[in-house]
């Protein structure tokens, strides 16, 4: 219980820090937009083509954006060594992770939701009726990206070449999320759309597995 209340306070802190400047969100959104536009030059973005390639492209853009967006979540704490203060403030260091994961998931979801109508307009895709399915896919996908990404951001923050290292460690680990979320989104965007529950289950399993691993080993990531 103390874990959750600690984490809730820390989520508030993360969100407040971000919304004071909004620099992370604005840069990420512009980055996703650029990736989507640049990718559209590599194939013919007509309706049929975009139904096949669009979801993969969208998730690639989210993944790249996340690998950049997750970078500062521990680097920000290093400037004034606020991580030590955080560690002293909470009894279970997992609360720090939980808060950062929640905040990162929220930021990613916000980016995704803002980009969805833009993407739909640019690639002539329609999924009005499938919105609940899309939201569920985005939520589970973003959660998976955030869980693994936050843990690896804690690793890369302690290494040299950290800007390059995080995508290097993160992207191969997120292969399952990329494969499954793309396939689920393709099925939601085809002419006879449906929600693939098998994929939703696999994404939920991925999230649960890595959240458990992080719960077990989280304290070691933050050791001095």
């Amino acid at each position: 219980m103390a874990l959750l209340s600690n984490a809730a306070v820390l989520v508030g802190k993360e969100v407040r820090t971000e919304f004071r400047s909004r620099e992370l969100l604005s840069t990420t959104i512009v980055f996703v937009l650029i990736v989507v536009v640049v990718f559209s030059f590599t194939f013919d973005p007509t309706t049929n083509e975009s139904r096949r390639f669009g979801p993969g492209l969208l998730w690639m853009a989210f993944l790249f954006a996340a690998s950049l967006m997750l970078q500062p979540c521990f680097l920000r704490e290093q400037v004034n060594d606020t991580l030590s203060a955080l560690r002293l403030a909470v009894r279970d260091p997992f609360a720090i992770f939980l808060a950062k994961i929640a905040a990162n998931t929220l930021f990613l979801l916000l980016t995704e939701l803002l980009m969805l109508p833009v993407f739909a307009a640019l690639f002539n895709a329609s999924f009005g009726a499938q919105l609940p399915g899309i939201l569920l896919t985005f939520l589970l996908g973003s959660l998976g990206i955030s869980v693994v990404g936050t843990a690896l951001a804690a690793i890369s923050a302690q290494a040299r070449m950290r800007e390059l290292l995080l995508p290097l460690l993160l992207l191969p680990l997120l292969t399952p999320i990329l494969v499954v979320s793309t396939e689920v989104t393709i099925r939601l965007m085809q002419s006879e759309p449906y929600l693939e529950w098998k994929g939703i289950g696999l994404m939920a399993a991925f999230d649960a597995v890595f959240l458990t691993v992080l719960w077990l080993f989280g304290e070691y990531f933050l050791e001095e």
Binding site: P172, V180, L202, V209, F210
Partner: peptide, 21 residues
Amino acid sequence: LLSALFGVFAFIDVPIVFGAI
């Protein structure tokens, strides 16, 4: 320590990759 932690993540990931594909 950091490489050991990454090693644990990597090893757990592979069966999920296999299942997903």
